[in-house]
Amino acid sequence: MEKINTSFKVIAFGMIAEKIKTKELVLEGIPNTDVLTGYLHQQYPELQHLKFSIAINKKQAVGNTMIPLGAEVALLPPFSGG
C-alpha cells in the first residue's frame, strides 16, 4: 500500500528565518500547531525565546489548530524597526 503523503511547507520570516537558517522547510507527520511549535522548539532551541505567530494558508491560527494536508504554514515574528 502506498504511504499517505502528510508533508507540508513551512515558510519563515524575519528573525525566525535567521535562526532556522532557511526561509523554507518541508515537514511531515505533524498534525497541529501545538505539535509544530514543540518540534520547532526542540530542533531550534533559540526559537524558545522568540515570540511568533503561526498562519495556515495565509490565515492566522489562534489556539491549537489542525494542519491540513498540503498546507502552507508561515512563522511570523513581530518587527519593530522604523
Binding site: G14, M15, H49, L50, K51, S53, P78, S80, G81, G82
Partner: peptide, 21 residues
C-alpha cells in the same frame, strides 16, 4: 494584539540601528 498578544522583550528583536537596513 490580535496578532501578537504578548509584547516581546528587548532581548528578542534588535532594531535597525543594531542590525542595519
Amino acid at each position: 494584539r490580535d496578532l501578537y498578544p504578548n509584547p516581546p522583550s528587548v532581548y528578542e528583536i534588535p532594531n535597525c540601528s543594531e542590525t542595519g537596513v
